[in-house]
């Protein structure tokens, strides 16, 4: 690693946490518009975070150190993942944590602690949230791994940056398995980021919520970290979707101009994703919890077909 790479590394590391609240805001805004509301400004999430950081905090008397430590760890994990995936350039040689399995399992690490923290307060909500979260997470894993594996097998490597580079150079004719894998990935994306039809990110209603139930007991800075981490995760998955399946435009080198172009393109792609998600969220109903597995298995099966179509 030489000195000239440092700014790009900083960009890589900071990009996800810096932009994630923005895209949450954007998604909310689009949704609001589609629902004929005005909605909060797109920068509202930043304000929320600031407000939360400035608040005192109440912690349940039943909670243990795990409850206190979890937000830091979960946020840190999203940082590491954010730094490991291709965002604007494939030229950062991250051969250490850039393996797609590492990313998938790091996500699981966050989920693990999130679920534990949900149980820790002893509230009835938290426990159920954890239960549902783990169910969804467990069932998502198959589709997620296999959809990414499709790409890995096409490009003969499991390194995300390399995958991105390879897929980008493929002719369009070989896109059938990739599209299938993308469908599968999208389902996993919705599940992992707690979106419709899996979860309703907007309510605190016990019948519908998963993610929110777990963080119900958090307040102040820890709630801020939790929300922020979840925003990071949202952006991470969108970035994966955007840069692995549609990697055109991602910079292949570490020069300023291509990187900045790629950044712009990246933002555009993410916005498209946000739009799509907002449309989905506004147009379909949340599924009953026991219908979710069907969807997740569908994702799994589609991936299997996709892999079958490779080469």
């Amino acid at each position: 690693m030489n000195i000239s790479e440092i700014p790009y590394w900083l960009l890589q590391i900071m990009l996800i946490p810096a932009l994630s609240p923005f895209f949450i805001g954007v998604t909310c805004r689009i949704k609001a518009i589609m629902q004929n509301r005005r909605g909060a400004p797109v920068l509202q999430p930043y304000r929320d975070l600031r407000k939360l950081f400035q608040k005192d905090e109440v912690i349940s008397e039943d909670a243990s150190w795990l409850f206190r430590a979890a937000p830091y760890l979960i946020f840190a994990v999203t940082l590491v993942i954010g730094a490991s995936i291709p965002l604007v350039t494939t030229a950062l040689p991250n051969s250490y944590t850039g393996d797609f399995l590492v990313v998938v399992y790091l996500v699981a690490l966050g989920t693990f602690f999130l679920a534990l923290a949900g149980i820790d307060s002893g509230s009835a909500f938290g426990g159920f949230g954890s239960s549902r979260e783990m169910m969804v997470a467990a069932l998502t894993e198959g589709g997620l791994v296999l959809s990414l594996l499709t790409l890995a097998l096409i490009s003969k490597t499991t390194n995300l940056a390399a995958i991105s580079e390879n897929i980008g150079s493929l002719p369009l004719t070989s896109f059938t398995p990739i599209i299938l894998a993308f469908i599968s990935f999208s389902i996993a994306l919705l599940a992992e980021t707690c979106r419709y039809p899996f979860d309703n990110p907007a309510t605190h209603l016990e019948l519908t919520m998963i993610h929110e139930a777990m963080i119900l007991e958090y307040s102040g800075k820890r709630l801020a970290l939790m929300e922020w981490a979840s925003a990071n995760k949202y952006l991470i998955f969108i970035a994966l979707g955007a840069n692995l399946f549609f990697p055109r435009g991602i910079a292949g080198s570490l020069e300023f101009v291509p990187v900045m172009l790629a950044l712009a393109l990246f933002a555009g792609k993410v916005l498209l994703f946000c739009l799509a998600i907002a449309i989905i969220e506004s147009s379909i109903a949340k599924l009953r919890i026991f219908r979710l597995p069907d969807l997740l298995f569908t994702s799994f099966v589609i991936s299997v077909i996709a892999i079958g179509l490779v080469n």
């Binding site: 039943d62 243990s64 795990l66 399992y105 699981a108 989920t111 693990f112 679920a115 534990l116 149980i119 820790d120 307060s121 002893g122 426990g127 954890s130 239960s131 783990m134 169910m135 997470a137 467990a138 069932l139 998502t140 894993e141 198959g142 997620l144 791994v145 296999l146």
Partner: peptide, 21 residues
């Protein structure tokens, strides 16, 4: 893959129910 996810779920249960709350 499923096994990994389910194992995590199971140990959230095992650890959570045993030690937490």
């Amino acid at each position: 893959a499923f096994t990994g996810g389910l194992a995590a779920a199971c140990f959230v249960k095992a650890f959570g129910i045993t030690f937490l709350a």
